[in-house]
Design a protein around this nucleic acid. Structure first.
Lengths: 216, 216
DNA sequence: GCGTGTCAATACGCCAGCGTATGGAAAAGA
DNA sequence: TCTTTTCCATACGCTGGCGTATTGACACGC
């Protein structure tokens, strides 16, 4: 354990700093010399831990993929009730402004081509998880997919709105936030009729009309 | 009219090329020398039309803001029926893959600080337009806002899904696309009960429970 | 104590991109 | 025709960031 007082950076420290830089300055903003300055060292340290800048990006992306799947999904997956899962997913929008910035920065990145692979895997895992949650409610495969796509869209779109129009988004401590969450829960949850309509696998479309709705 | 055969670039040509570069390489990818190469000229041409790179970005953003408000909204605004407007907005997701890439690149950009102002104005105009569309259905201000936030989220999230998970998104020519649009229309449209419940401006929440839903 | 391995600082060459300065060609005006 | 204006090319200096090479400072095993 070599760790006197000079802190001794590890490769994970660099990867974490790179992830932070992605969130604050985008993928293009990940430079070894700028990050070295932020860490209080020079790039002489970096090129001992990594062969080049691309390896740093790979390490950061691996770290990101691990966190966005294992940690986040595990936290939502502890909810056994599918309805609680969706609600948890919605309220999860307002947690970790930093993680959402990283997601959007990676989603819009193009330059290192392999970034797209990580984004695609993480996004697909999330979507599949939501699909499974809706399927657990008894929906057919097609319907579960439709509901999941809409819920995932709301999740992603909410992240962007909160970033682009922060004044238009209710704060988590305001009552408007809880009201909006309740509103979304009603809108993003199929009614019992939908679920019940799925037991014998009907061939007719399961959502052609709406009898009631949000009325009271 | 000086315009023999040497094409004679104008400032708008540069701004348009910069917008295209934003969509393909992000805001950081807007360089005067790379764009000059793409236009078949040198930067000697650029610095005659613009004082510096920042001015090019401003010109590109002004052009973008004008297009995203006047053109797009006018195209949707021609629909007088609020329901048709929302449907038009949804199907508009699948048009112009390039425009959506520009939007997302600008939305995740941070470096020139004034980019955020343009994104905020364009986003707010779009959201306000959707809010007005729902208000035209007879919803209260709070409810119109809630529905609009959800619809706008679906719109933005769909753009991201189509970019991050293109395989999971139905093509416009497949029947699954039309079915999903119909599904969204049902989900993103308040029922007549909701609208009717708004005439005397009731003080009780207008969406506490759901009587029916997507069942058939 | 003494080498060995670990981590970081320094110095260097390289390249891409910004901004400037200057010159040139061709059309427009006089 | 001669000047002026318009638009672009060329050449230059400058900066920031990448990658390499070399050296240096500790810690630890022996």
């Amino acid at each position: 354990m070599t760790k006197s007082q000079k802190v001794m950076l590890t490769a994970n420290d660099w990867a974490e700093a790179a992830l932070d830089a992605i969130g604050r300055r985008g993928v293009e903003g990940v430079g070894v010399e700028p990050i070295a300055r932020e860490l209080g060292v020079t790039k002489g340290s970096f090129y001992w831990h990594f062969p080049n800048r691309e390896a740093l990006l790979v390490a950061a992306l691996q770290r990101w993929e691990a966190r966005e799947t294992d940690e986040v999904l595990d936290r939502v997956q502890q909810e056994t009730d599918p309805r609680a899962r969706v609600k948890r997913l919605i309220t999860e929008v307002n947690t970790s402004k930093k993680a959402s910035r990283i997601y959007s920065a990676l989603s819009s990145a193009t330059k290192p081509a392999f970034v797209r692979d990580y984004v695609e895997r993480v996004s697909k895992r999330r979507l599949d998880f939501i699909i499974d949650s809706y399927a657990a409610l008894g929906l057919s495969a097609e319907n579960a997919r439709r509901w999941a796509l809409m819920t995932f869209s709301v999740f992603l779109g909410s992240l962007q709105i909160r970033r682009d129009l922060p004044d238009e988004w209710p704060n988590a401590d305001e009552p408007a936030f809880a009201e909006y969450v309740r509103f979304l829960m009603v809108s993003l949850m199929p009614s019992e009729l939908d679920a019940a309509s799925n037991t014998p696998a009907p061939q007719v479309p399961e959502w052609p009309a709406r009898s009631g709705g949000h009325g009271f």
